[in-house]
Design a protein around this nucleic acid. Structure first.
Lengths: 147, 147
DNA sequence: CGCAATTAGATTGTATCAAATCTAATCTGT
DNA sequence: ACAGATTAGATTTGATACAATCTAATTGCG
């Protein structure tokens, strides 16, 4: 590909993914607002609903986020009554994150809300699934700072 | 799909795109730093290298970004000597963005740098192109605040 | 043991993003 | 002409992201 072609916005996979990410989150935003959640708070809960009582580090590995992002986010969610942050007795360097009852309860409302949000997405389950698997394959191949 | 399946992080197209976006930008970051650019500054230049002398609004339409993001970004790039911001004489509500010679020059270095960056991506041109077209198709179907 | 290296998390500073609001300029219908 | 609606940008505020740096705790090894 020549210079001008390679540098066209339209030919950039990275930009397409970047733009898609922001536009999809924009669509989710009003639905998540009904739950009182931001998008990042929502994905934190997705992890905890699957596996509760994990360390901040493990949470960050699932989400590809570091402590600089998670620490203030989790403090806000703790203040909102969604979860607890508790240092490990064995090794005080670890912080364990546990859902409150309220945090666990929210899963039901989230399920209803997310179904509505998905209906607003002009894409079939099959197409979504196909693109998702292709991107997951790419994501797992990418060199990571987390090894 | 039942409740637990639907709410699994692994089954979320939106999260996969969101994580991919950040991880790819992370890979680009050190390469762009060689050019003295952040990722957002780089995509602004991609647009201007294709079509110079456009309004802030048109720039925002290409990038899916609004003035709240672009105004401070463009002021920083103006201060860095990459572009000029100039109000239209005909309609002073419009700001035209024009590259400086330095801004135009940077395209050559960016081409070299981006080739290097792409070599670091564990993906073939064909696969990248295929995923890109699928995501562009989705992106163009999404309802937009910009109509 | 005792010290260097490692590790987890917190903090700080910079750079996005986006919703809401504001100002100035232009357009529209009568 | 002119009031009301629309439009383009700027500003403000709040929420991420992330690199770099710091602190405290733990581990590895001679």
């Amino acid at each position: 590909m020549d210079r001008d072609e390679l540098l066209k916005l339209d030919n950039q996979l990275c930009f397409t993914i970047y733009a898609c990410s922001r536009e999809i989150i924009r669509i989710y935003r009003p639905f998540l607002a009904e739950l009182g959640l931001t998008y990042t708070q929502y994905v934190v809960l997705l992890v905890l609903w699957e596996k509760d009582d994990i360390t901040l580090k493990e949470l960050g590995e699932h989400l590809y986020l570091d402590s600089g992002t998670l620490t203030p986010l989790l403090k806000k969610m703790e203040a909102a009554g969604l979860l607890f942050r508790q240092r490990s007795h064995d090794d005080e360097r670890h912080i364990f994150i546990r859902l409150t009852e309220q945090g666990k309860e929210l899963k039901n409302a989230a399920y209803e809300t997310l179904q509505k949000a998905f209906c607003n997405m002009p894409i079939s389950m099959e197409e979504a699934s196909s693109i998702r698997e292709q991107l997951k394959s790419l994501l797992h191949r990418l060199p990571s700072v987390r090894g």
